[in-house]
Design a protein around this nucleic acid. Sequence first.
DNA 1: TTGTGACTTACAGTCCGTC
DNA 2: CGACGGACTGTAAGTCACA
Lengths: 76, 76
Amino acid sequence: MKRTHPGLLRNILATNVRRFRMARGLSQQDFALEIEMDRTYYGGVERGERNVSVDNIERIANGLGISPDLLFREAD
Amino acid sequence: MKRTHPGLLRNILATNVRRFRMARGLSQQDFALEIEMDRTYYGGVERGERNVSVDNIERIANGLGISPDLLFREAD
DNA sequence: TTGTGACTTACAGTCCGTC
DNA sequence: CGACGGACTGTAAGTCACA
């Protein structure tokens, strides 16, 4: 599912999620497993292809051990 | 649709959205109209009944004229 | 002015893979 | 390890009539 353009917010989310996950030194699959999310779906999130819902944003933020609002801050 | 649910992030979002909208002195219907969203759907968001996705969060934040991450900050 | 139940359709989200 | 595809299921998205 190649859902590129629409919003930029999901791209911000995507880069942030990826950055925080890598900072924790985890692979996509390991992290996805940890938060009980499908690995292919989670990969799509990091690619900005998925229009993630709040409940899943919460799961991801919890898994990363950070406050959810950090995932929506513009890259610096 | 009574989706009185699990996640609390959804409720944080709900209260924040409502607070910012009221701060702008707008009714749900007027605001919903402004961002081209169905009034009953938007109402459900403010009630924390809807598991909103990123694209819609973006639309709401844009309509409120604020940075999306403000919608995810814990109430003080 | 907002809430609610009922409803259909689009896509979120899962699971099997390959490269 | 991560990108990506096909086929599926569940639920968000979106609308309405009425309270």
